[in-house]
């Protein structure tokens, strides 16, 4: 019974990157470095031993400082990156609402892009055809749908991307920050659409720097630091820990600054004394 309710299981996931000091991406350099024996890589674990479950209908917030591995984790869950270790099991359709319209072709018209982007997301032709009018209507593009996307404003592009991506009710929705699509009116509309998905009991993964948003949307949260989960549980508890971390970081900075100031002062004093002695 318990197991059936799990929509997403992340099991001991680790993601390793090879960081070379200089990126070698051509044969010429590779040979030169190979002969000189300069081909050294530095290993870097962006994620290490990350394990958590998300139950169906749960809203999970992912918080962490810059470089904690949040985006990498989302990419692993979305299937874009394959983890070096461990596995991710998902149930149902994942829709990542990240960087809308990234799959558009600029030369193509909006109408053609609906089919292209839809097919990228794995929809069938019949399905897209049946939903075509709905997409055009929701995106409010009107006649512009026959214009190549390169002539669109960024707002228009995002509107079209949003309309296609939210075509089906996903089982798992991935949100990166809160969407700010188009003008105020469209933003309201898109928020309403996302809200309606929430009401239908979709599982949500939400990444944000803003604690307020996370508290508002999520009920559970995890916190990442240097690629590992350091807190997992109720959103309020995690938020408190995150706040503490932020405070600590601030204090650390303050302390560093104070220390630096002190040293500078002392140096100044010493040089003044020297001048006096002279």
């Amino acid at each position: 019974m318990e197991k059936q309710d799990i929509a997403l299981a992340v099991d001991h996931v680790g993601m390793k990157f090879n960081l070379s000091k200089e990126k070698v991406d051509n044969l010429k350099e590779y040979f030169i470095k190979f002969i000189k024996k300069e081909l050294t890589y530095q290993e870097f674990w962006a994620l290490k031993d990350v394990t958590f479950d998300v139950k169906r209908g749960e809203h999970l917030g992912i918080v962490g400082l810059n470089g904690a591995g949040k985006s990498t984790l989302l990419k692993v869950i979305a299937g874009v990156l394959k983890p070096t270790e461990g596995s991710v099991k998902t149930k149902g359709k994942i829709v990542p609402l990240l960087e809308l319209g990234a799959g558009f072709d600029k030369q193509y018209t909006g109408a053609e892009n609906i089919y292209l982007y839809g097919s990228l997301l794995g929809y069938s032709k019949e399905f897209i055809t049946s939903k075509f009018d709905e997409i055009v209507e929701f995106s409010e593009l009107g006649e512009f749908i026959e214009v190549p996307v390169k002539n669109y404003s960024s707002g228009m592009r995002a509107r079209l991307g949003f309309s296609i991506a939210t075509l089906v009710k996903p089982d798992i929705l991935i949100l990166d920050e809160v969407l700010s699509v188009g003008d105020a009116q469209f933003r309201k509309k898109s928020e309403a659409k996302i809200q309606s998905m929430f009401d239908q009991g979709v599982t949500v993964l939400f990444v944000s720097h803003s604690l307020e948003q996370v508290k508002r949307i999520c009920d559970k949260a995890i916190m990442l630091e240097h690629g590992t989960v350091i807190a997992h549980g109720d959103v309020m508890d995690v938020a408190n820990i995150y706040n503490e971390k932020l405070q600590q970081k601030k204090q650390k900075k303050k302390r560093m600054r104070r220390k630096l100031n002190q040293e500078l002062n002392e140096q100044a004093k010493r040089s003044r004394e020297k001048q006096k002695n002279n």
């Binding site: 990419k75 979305a78 299937g79 874009v80 990542p96 990240l98 960087e99 990234a102 799959g103 990228l120 997301l121």
Partner: peptide, 9 residues
């Protein structure tokens, strides 16, 4: 590559 980085295909 830009597509590949965002959507799984």
């Amino acid at each position: 590559s830009s597509m590949m980085r965002k959507v799984y295909v």
